[in-house]
Simulated scan of single mutants.
Amino acid sequence: MVRVLFLGGLGRSGTTLLERLLGELPGVCPLGEVVHLWERDVAGDERCACGEHFSECGFWREVGEKAFGGWHHVDVWRVLALRHAVERTRHIPRLASVRMSPAHRLLVEEYADWYARLYEAAAVVSGAEVLVDSSKHAALAYCLRFAPGLDLRVAHVVRDSRGVAYSWTKKVTRPETDNAEEMTRYSPGHSALLWNAHNVAFSALHKCGVPVTRVRYESLLEDPSAVLRELSEFVGIDPGDMGFIRDGVAELGPCHSAAGNPMRFTVGPVPLRRDDAWRTALPGGQRRVVSALTAPLLGAYGYRGAR
């Protein structure tokens, strides 16, 4: 069985930082947002976190050979067509249902098998006990429970919705491309609705038999070692002494994260401090809108007292 820790939640919730920290633990290999690998890397040849283009990265080249006999044997457009057919937020009720039609289940299983083959190869190439996929998409996590030979565990990462909303308004350049593309931006109201949808979906995933634990972004930065120890126990590994974390700073080494936030390219010391700029930088009207739209879950996740 290939053990995969899937990091789920809405983007800008700290999943890339968590993935990088997990990647420093012995026996753990971070893969990045595998959901985007097919289009951005296999087809688009964007840069791996190691700095090389995907096609030139020795790690991913070896994974492709072992999984598919080479990436040229991957029908990217078939994978993307399957994704469109089964891996959408609106399909989650069907993915969670015991009454899924046989025809639809075959599509889900075919889609999940592409991931299972990639994970199995990555486990062999890396020699890791646990792979980390920071794809975040709730629908993908529901699909992956149909993957053969996969020991799926999910860390549901949540962050205060107002901090997430503010982050989605920022302009962020994607360094993995050669034409200075910017990452997607959302209005605070839109991101609040997405925050609700993604977090509700992950809150219900355990009902499908998938082990799920919750990680608060704020708790990660308050005591990163404690959170990493809890996650290590969750996936069944020894975290070691975590000597890469000292005095509120993490020393990060290089990795082969295939897609995701630009933070995946960072190597060296990274301060572990909360980003609460939203408290003053997000206009009061927008902050109140986000608070109102997300109030029930904010309370459920322990953010009720935040202003």
Score class of each variant (00 low, 15 high):
215 V>I: 09
247 D>Y: 10
205 L>H: 04
13 S>Y: 09
102 P>H: 03
55 S>A: 10
36 H>Y: 14
169 T>N: 04
244 F>A: 04
292 A>T: 14
66 K>G: 07
117 R>Q: 06
281 A>E: 15
79 V>M: 00
285 G>D: 15
183 M>E: 13
89 T>G: 12
58 G>N: 06
135 S>C: 05
81 A>H: 05
230 E>S: 14
131 L>R: 04
149 G>I: 10
189 G>K: 08
91 H>M: 14
222 E>R: 14
51 G>W: 05
291 S>T: 12
22 L>W: 01
33 E>F: 01
72 H>T: 00
178 D>I: 13
180 A>P: 10
191 S>R: 07
216 R>Q: 12
35 V>G: 10
258 A>S: 15
173 T>H: 09
153 R>D: 09
170 K>E: 13
162 R>A: 14
166 Y>M: 12
113 D>G: 01
140 L>I: 10
294 T>M: 05
43 A>G: 04
205 L>E: 07
167 S>R: 03
31 L>F: 00
206 H>G: 15
225 S>L: 13
95 L>A: 10
247 D>K: 10
142 Y>V: 11
238 D>Q: 08
151 D>L: 13
194 L>N: 05
140 L>D: 04
142 Y>P: 08
5 L>Y: 04
263 M>E: 10
215 V>K: 07
33 E>I: 06
215 V>R: 07
103 A>N: 04
93 P>Y: 03
213 T>P: 01
44 G>M: 02
74 V>S: 00
222 E>A: 15
238 D>W: 09
157 V>L: 15
9 G>Q: 09
227 V>W: 02
277 A>H: 11
136 K>Y: 11
297 L>K: 05
167 S>C: 07
131 L>P: 00
99 R>P: 01
115 Y>Q: 12
269 P>Q: 00
67 A>I: 00
25 L>V: 08
112 A>I: 07
16 T>G: 07
79 V>Q: 04
277 A>L: 14
35 V>A: 13
3 R>G: 02
242 M>E: 12
234 F>D: 01
23 G>R: 00
263 M>T: 04
142 Y>Q: 08
277 A>Q: 09
270 V>S: 06
227 V>I: 14
50 C>V: 11
28 V>Q: 01
298 L>G: 09
251 E>L: 08
4 V>P: 06
178 D>S: 14
70 G>S: 00
142 Y>H: 13
54 F>S: 00
155 A>Y: 07
135 S>R: 05
7 L>C: 09
165 A>C: 08
105 R>C: 10
102 P>L: 01
7 L>P: 07
94 R>W: 11
221 L>M: 11
148 P>M: 05
52 E>P: 01
114 W>S: 08
153 R>G: 13
242 M>D: 09
19 E>N: 01
149 G>E: 06
270 V>K: 01
76 V>Y: 02
87 E>Y: 02
21 L>Y: 01
114 W>G: 07
